[in-house]
Amino acid sequence: MTLRPPVEPMLAQAVESVPGSGVLGELAFEQKFDGYRALLFTPTGTAGRLLVQTRRGTLIQDRFPGLLTAAQQLPAGLVLDGELVVWDQQAGQLSFEALQRRAAARSRTARGLATSLPAYFIAFDILQQDGTELLNDPYRQRRARLETLFATHQLSSPWTLCPMTTHLDKAQEWLESWTDMSGVEGLVVKAMNQPYRTGYRGWYKLRRRNTTEAIIGAITGTLTRPQLLLLGRHDPHNHLRPIGRTTPLRPEAAHLVGGNLTAADPGHPWTGLRFTSAWGSRDVLDVTLVHPDLVAEISADTAVDRGGVYRHPVRFKRLRLDVTVDDVPRLRACPAAAAG
């Protein structure tokens, strides 16, 4: 049976460390790129054109004309799973913000952006070849097919083969060194004998996390029992700018933080700002502003916008009562007024 969009991709669950191979068997480690998850479909015959589907099932190929032009490199009846990324030529790095611009562009604008912000498709799985489904094949065989596809057809830009290794030492090197580069945020761990199960969280994602500090500027919940912490940093002009929020606090952490919070004085720098429940969400949080004199030590992944805003919730580790807000790293640029 030929696969047609929409197809639910297989998903990954977040973990803190590499799962043991005792249960999963031999493991494969792929580099995790910070882009848009996408499935790519080539027509099964001479008619039709390339289709690019997002994780949620939307077709977006018209926003990436460079991929349509390069589709002639690909054979018919093919379905690939991968990550869409965009290279910002001016900044000289992969850019999630640039990817958002490309994804929102239409017709003439999309063609114009294709030159300055070229898109690439990083393939990490093959779900169909020559019109034949491969979902029940183990990952080991699908990966071998994918590598052969790239070699046989000499696929080149914008098609890229996702780096993979079965060596833990190599994977740890990637996690420690490659994640210093913009656009690479960790590893995806897969079992070599796994079939592809659509919509199932059967893979594991491990993001590199860094420990740093931020200023507590607002909370959800109450002053005595906060639930989330809204965090900020000073910009070069000494303005306190929102940079993100924590995951829900554990009871002991909430008790500790609540015992040190004080209500905000008039003229708090975030007066009138709205804070959303997640990055890119429109759901507004009910927050209480607090006196911005407490410093939180946090654990955060490397997905940070150019303005310094964390795209994923960070984890609260402890209060740093031994340091002041002047010791907190400053922003290099001013992020947007509201934090996600």
Rank of each mutant, 00 (worst) to 15 (best):
D322I: 06
R245H: 13
R320S: 02
T271N: 12
L261D: 05
V325I: 15
V295M: 07
A303R: 08
E252T: 15
W270S: 00
P292Y: 04
R306F: 15
P269N: 07
A337C: 08
H234T: 02
G280I: 04
D293S: 08
S277P: 03
G308C: 11
V295T: 06
P335F: 13
G232C: 11
L285V: 03
D322V: 03
T247W: 11
G267A: 06
S281L: 04
P251I: 08
W279Y: 15
L240W: 06
A300W: 01
R282W: 02
D326L: 12
R330P: 07
L319Y: 03
R282A: 02
D283L: 09
T246W: 08
A254V: 06
P313V: 13
V314F: 01
L285F: 06
G258N: 12
L289T: 00
D235Y: 14
T302H: 04
N260F: 14
R241S: 04
T288V: 15
P236R: 14
V325W: 10
A337E: 12
E252R: 14
P335K: 04
H234W: 05
L231P: 01
L231Q: 01
L240Y: 05
L331I: 10
L321K: 01
G272W: 14
N260W: 14
R241V: 05
P292T: 04
E297G: 11
N260T: 14
R274G: 05
N238E: 10
G280W: 00
W279G: 00
G244A: 08
R233I: 01
N260P: 03
I243K: 02
R245A: 11
H237K: 11
V328D: 10
L319S: 00
E297N: 03
Y310M: 05
T246D: 05
P335G: 11
W279D: 02
N238Y: 12
L256N: 08
D265Y: 06
A333P: 00
L289W: 07
L240C: 07
N260M: 14
V287P: 07
L256D: 10
G232S: 07
L230A: 02
A296E: 07
L319M: 08
A333D: 14
Y310E: 01
R330G: 04
A296D: 06
V325L: 09
V257Y: 10
D305H: 06
D327V: 07
A338D: 13
D286V: 11
G232I: 11
L256V: 13
L240Q: 03
L261F: 12
P236T: 11
T246F: 05
P313C: 06
D283H: 10
S281D: 13
A278K: 09
W279C: 03
R245Q: 13
R306K: 06
H268E: 10
L249K: 01
H291V: 00
D283Y: 04
H239Y: 15
R311E: 09
W279F: 15
V314R: 00
V304P: 04
G272E: 08
T246A: 08
H268T: 11
R330L: 11
A254N: 10
T302E: 09
D322G: 03
R315E: 13
G272T: 00
I243G: 00
N260V: 13
H312P: 02
A263R: 10
E297K: 11
V309E: 08
R306L: 13
